[in-house]
Nucleic acid binder design. Sequence first.
DNA 1: GTCAAGTGAGAAAAGGTTTTCTCAGCTGTT
DNA 2: AACAGCTGAGAAAACCTTTTCTCACTTGAC
Lengths: 344, 344
Amino acid sequence: MEELLDTTGGKRGRITIHDVAAAAGISISTASKALNDTGRMGLETRERVKRIAAEIGYRPNALARGLLSKRSFTIGLLTNDTYGRFTLPVMAGISDALVDHGVSVFLCAIEEDPALAQIHVEAMLDKQVDGIIATGKRLDRRLPVDLSNLNVPVVYAFTEGAPGSVTFRSDDAQGARLAVEWLAKLGRKRIVHVTGPENFFSVRERADAYRRVAGEEQPVLFGVWSESWGHEAVARLWSGSGERPDGIFCGNDQIARGVIDALRERGIRVPQDVSVVGFDNWEIVAAQTRPPLTTVDMELKELGRQAGLTVLALAEGRSVEPGIRKLPCRLVVRQSCGGDTLGI
Amino acid sequence: MEELLDTTGGKRGRITIHDVAAAAGISISTASKALNDTGRMGLETRERVKRIAAEIGYRPNALARGLLSKRSFTIGLLTNDTYGRFTLPVMAGISDALVDHGVSVFLCAIEEDPALAQIHVEAMLDKQVDGIIATGKRLDRRLPVDLSNLNVPVVYAFTEGAPGSVTFRSDDAQGARLAVEWLAKLGRKRIVHVTGPENFFSVRERADAYRRVAGEEQPVLFGVWSESWGHEAVARLWSGSGERPDGIFCGNDQIARGVIDALRERGIRVPQDVSVVGFDNWEIVAAQTRPPLTTVDMELKELGRQAGLTVLALAEGRSVEPGIRKLPCRLVVRQSCGGDTLGI
DNA sequence: GTCAAGTGAGAAAAGGTTTTCTCAGCTGTT
DNA sequence: AACAGCTGAGAAAACCTTTTCTCACTTGAC
């Protein structure tokens, strides 16, 4: 009870290259060159130094190294996506791509607070990050902070970038085509689109692509990103006297979930009577619907991976062509459309 | 099209303290002391240096500072929670608590991979983190990496810690009591508990607390963490000939959602006939149930905040008493129990 | 026997900051 | 007039690496 923790931050006695040099009976310059495979020296010396370094557990101090090399092997990830629904896969991709290069990632959640964002950006710059990746939850919104004159490279992922920058985003039009074509391939003739607010860029893009495949006259129901809107949309579709749809392409998985629940409550069978396809492949929603949801995955992890490699390239001084890169989506077939036993 | 991005990592011409000293016509030592409010000098000089530093936009290089002070103002957050369901609130709390102290956070998602975990830990140590917070998705599981002899302080949050360490966790027993007492207060007499797998420590703890309030003879239905288990549990409860429950305390929000959906499908009204309470306050689930879910919030953000402040204290050499700290949960009243207009 | 070239390794500077030490000049006391 | 004590400020060391420069020594060629 009375014993207090004495993990006093320690660091007393961290092993430095001096220790290696002393143990090997050589100078620190030789030790450095041996360990970095630079300079000239006998092979035997080099091997011996390496062995000794490994034995005494020497690890170079990244701060000292960074001070000299101007590379900290650190990047910052700025996001305003509190839920982490979009940020987490992106982060996973970035980390995955960069861990091999010894790069670590500062995660900064900035909400919508410009002051907080500024603090985080300055903290990152003070720590000499090699680059910054900005990510968000909407393709057509900027982060509440200006990153355009930063003297470190900035890459945008799933958020609107500054002009002349590199921006990665999903190809929502292609994703929508994937969904609608899948419904068509399964023989669905009367396909409707139930989606989110029209002021979202991606909503318009998906809706346009839908119309281009399903027919320009096809109805699009704009609403909000919620299950209850899915319910309401079904009520609306089934209330009129017109023909009922046999395929519903939903703007996201939550809406799809609402749609499926509403259909079931009406005794309409999914997928026998109506096929439903979602968007986002948000596992936690898509896998829990009954039946599990066929949906479009935006491949955010891959997006993160590419963003990571790009910011690294820029940090190393390699030139990268600016512009918007659209990454293809992928259809994840589960059971809400049928066709899941087809083996596409 | 042909113009290539030349954000070459830049950093050419970062302003150093030498520039400040030169601009002020003094030595760098005086400049340093002026800016840090240390040493002796005329007030007028101090003010002037500060003003000039601000004017030319000087920001100290954290790498150089860290090299000397042995403090990097950086900590690492290690997690195996891929979904981020638990990690994100914890992270938000940590960041929130530490941003004022100028501390940035490395986020390392290690899945269950010991090798990956080791790489991340070493990368962080190389970068001289001031401390590490380990977090996970289960109170009774360790991360797949040994953090016990690290010579930087380690704090555990929502995961099992090494013996003699500081560990923060939610008080699940108290949370369960909160839920059951709320049901009792609303007049519910026959309360059952539908929860997850019994081999989870928190499941047992919640179940024990439930029994202690509701009565030792009360039934506990152990299952899995899914909506479908909620459905099945309702089927089971309503299939027998015995008395039906009028209150259901669910082990998490997903189960609660399944329970509520199943009840509705049976024509049983929530909350008029049966009150349902969940656990986790996972907004995305709890707010989308019909009716919205009354549930127990584990205050993970607060947990993160305390973990952050603690690791900071240890990093600064302050002593902290080891042991497990249980943080109280909070009941979030929505509409699935009734009583939401009571104004508790 | 002289020279050029090559080899192995160390000394020293650099990177940006903080901190300790030293020093010159001043004030006030005896 | 001597001296203790204070004030303002700079020089230099330290933190840990990497890199450039230098140097002594060996080898081989003429």
